[in-house]
């Protein structure tokens, strides 16, 4: 199976134009298989990805590179009921969620 999304990395160029991501605490809502979260972690951010689909969260956990272990986390959660205190994150991102 070979299905490649955005190998030209246009998406990450777009995100780089937003702000400096280094050291930022980021919540990705609807993280799916973790593709975008891994890209954001590669920019130096600490990323928490949530997705309601348990099987996709397992894929994301398996695909997370060991070098990002301390700044890339995934969990099963619903976007409508986030279990985080108010004012926790610097950036919240909906990547291909709507």
């Amino acid at each position: 199976m070979s299905y490649i999304i955005d190998p030209e990395r246009q998406e990450i160029r777009l995100l780089r134009a937003v702000t400096s991501w280094r050291g930022k605490h980021v919540l990705e809502i609807g993280s799916g298989d973790g593709r975008l979260a891994r890209r954001i972690a590669s920019l130096g951010a600490r990323v928490e990805g949530i997705d309601p689909d348990n099987s996709l969260v397992r894929v994301a956990l398996r695909a997370a590179p060991p070098r990002f272990a301390c700044r890339l986390r995934f969990r099963v959660a619903q976007a409508e009921h986030l279990r985080y205190p108010a004012e926790t994150f610097d950036i919240a991102i909906f990547g291909w969620s709507f």
């Binding site: 976007a79 409508e80 108010a86 926790t88 994150f89 950036i91 991102i93 909906f94 291909w96 969620s97």
Partner: peptide
């Protein structure tokens, strides 16, 4: 969708950014 946006806004710090990325 609106509930999810409201929750995202709640957990953002003041001056924090909400980024929405999807195919146009």
């Amino acid at each position: 969708m609106v509930h999810a946006l409201e929750e995202a806004a709640r957990v953002l710090k003041p001056n924090g950014l909400l980024v929405e990325l999807r195919p146009a």
